[in-house]
Amino acid sequence: MSWLIAGLFCMVAALIAGMVLMYILPLDFSERSPVQPLIFSHKLHAGANGIPCLYCHHHADKSPVAGIPALADCRACHLYISPEAPEIKKLMGYWDRQEPIAWARVNNLPDHAYFPHMMHIRAKIDCSICHGQVAAMERISRTASLKMGWCLDCHRQHKASIDCWTCHI
């Protein structure tokens, strides 16, 4: 009988421990720096060549979404710039098949959070505050936690609205 009570107690304890563990452990299993279908170097484009972020992500200052450049935009430059490089050939292959590139998403917010890029750019928040030093990254990786507390810290610091409805509708 006693082993039954002990077993039951152990089980409850294990369950509680599991729950606590689940609560404190990061439950985000998405990769911080996933392998992309095409080796695209931000270090080369934004770093070495000094192309401004908004040149390619040109919706960021007028839309909630920053926008990934269309395949035609990449192609427009690379018809002339190093067209013989292996990755560019791969890019042209996508174009020939008329197939969009399915990039792996690195910085992702849950569906119930609304993040308008244009408001942050208008407030002169530098891209690197959320996206990290992209100009130094060979492969993009997530540097910020993107958790609500992290958002709020910055909002408080900049005296931006901390009304719930600012982000959650």
Binding site: H112, S161, C164
Partner: peptide, 15 residues
Amino acid sequence: SYHNPDGLNGQIYSR
């Protein structure tokens, strides 16, 4: 369910 600075009654679904 909370009160918003603009005088609206908010409802935060994720909460």
